[in-house]
Design a protein around this nucleic acid. Structure first.
Lengths: 259, 259
DNA sequence: CGATAGCACTGGTAGTGACCAGTTCGCGTC
DNA sequence: GACGCGAACTGGTCACTACCAGTGCTATCG
């Protein structure tokens, strides 16, 4: 029995929420507070400006200090604020740390201020084969879901994505996929699979004639090929994806630290 | 007093005293527990094996659940364990943590098991100009040191590197550079400049005829262009470098985490 | 007038206690 | 045997409290 089956059954008889569709998981207080603080940060606060103290946030939002600290810890991890023992919590310098985290295409584009969409080029089941089988640690004879999408940013082709998922995990989730949906979100809401980690490889390449046509650039244009294996919270391999990004529109920015 | 002043003071105070006062720092309970758990993990536990439950760890180590959760949260962030709501805490699969960190070419190659060397193609002083001046935040009229090197791994061309450094910082350090030396190490030992952070951009490109000849690959071969501005501990810009890596020999591997 | 001791902040650690939410498994029923 | 249900786990959230530790301003003392 898979996690997906279990989840489907439980929802089948248990859910009391509004009848239809993607059951939004309940939002917690620290998440709410984090969003409120994010809005505060986005509304014109300057770098190194102090935030209200933990005690003040307790009073203002009527939550306990545990909750305040939880929300602030999340913001620290996201690089939005930094804390100095005895002094306070301060707005961090804006940092392009986005690429160091595992984000879906939609999230990635949103972070760049673009609207993501996609065109599904192909979807179906097939036998894994040697290469995909090895990456997903399945028998080459096992079935996988194969999904090819053209990903658009502001309606312009940006990336060509080739994704393989184990049938056992992705099951029929992929059939629910449409132009606007995020695969990771679907996996979460419909299969109970939460993607948490990925091993990713980046290398430069040049586009074949077919790839170039789809991406609307001249053949032999430079592109970035990223290959990634994605893991869920229990270490299962849930995705093997090869993405081809247009070199003229896409670049990766990272902050590096000496350790 | 502004927050900026506060920060500057803090950094000045904190970074002074390179190796003064070692273990003055009091160990906390959650740190102790984390070390105990790390020893437990290192003593032959298998991946996906469950750890004792939070309640059991409370009893066994005679601490509160807050402390247990704090220690476990640290281990999660370090990628040593993962948690599944309702099921337990489990040993994570050993991960080759090749996080992207700021490393010199020599260090980078050493990490891949290769021996780095270089051929200096050009070195000298010149006027910064608009582009370099902007990146290093200098007047375009100011002088910079310009250094072009072909970087080799196991005596094979791997990367073409174009580096600009402010004269004020790099001074005559660069004259001491030879085939085997690391620029960052020279800056540290001879100029007292310690590189700690960089903002780096990655994008794919194709090689020109000249570049391809130097790197010993066919023209129009794919390559990775990285542009980086490097900062020292005081936040001064110490380097603006453009590196061109062979696409057939160089790839970047990263671990991404969902936050 | 400058150094400094003290105080009023700040975040950090730690405990207790309660309840919520997801997972697992066994027992009873069909 | 398959299924459904619930009890007994697991981690997650959140409240309250107390005190420790680092920071920064200020009033006081030499």
């Amino acid at each position: 029995m898979t996690a997906g089956d279990r989840r489907a059954r439980r929802r089948g008889h248990g859910d009391l929420g509004p009848s239809t569709a993607p059951s939004r998981h309940r939002t917690t207080k620290h998440e709410e507070l984090r969003h409120a603080l994010t809005r505060l940060l986005d509304s014109g606060m300057q770098a190194h400006e102090p935030l209200p103290s933990e005690r003040e946030l307790m009073d203002r939002f009527e939550v306990s200090r545990v909750t305040v600290r939880h929300a602030l810890a999340d913001l620290v991890q996201r690089g939005r604020v930094y804390r100095v023992h005895g002094a306070g919590t301060f707005v961090a310098e804006p940092v392009v740390r986005k690429e160091m985290t595992l984000s879906s295409f939609s999230e990635d584009m949103a972070a760049r201020g673009l609207v993501a969409s996609s065109r599904i080029l192909a979807v179906g089941r097939e036998v894994a084969g040697a290469a995909v089988g090895q990456q997903l640690q399945l028998s080459p004879a096992e079935e996988v879901v194969h999904l090819t999408r053209l990903r658009l940013a502001n309606s312009e082709p940006m990336c060509l994505e080739d994704t393989h998922l184990p049938v056992e995990i992705a099951g029929d989730v992929v059939t629910k996929l449409h132009e606007k949906s995020s695969l990771y979100e679907l996996l979460h809401t419909h299969a109970g699979v939460r993607v948490v980690r990925a091993e990713q490889q980046l290398r430069p390449t040049v586009l074949s004639r077919e790839e170039a046509a789809l991406l609307d650039v001249p053949p032999l244009s430079p592109a970035l090929l990223t290959t990634r294996v994605t893991f869920d919270e229990r270490g299962r391999r849930v995705e093997y994806a090869k993405s081809l990004y247009r070199g003229d529109r896409y670049s990766i920015e990272v902050n590096l630290w000496r350790i």
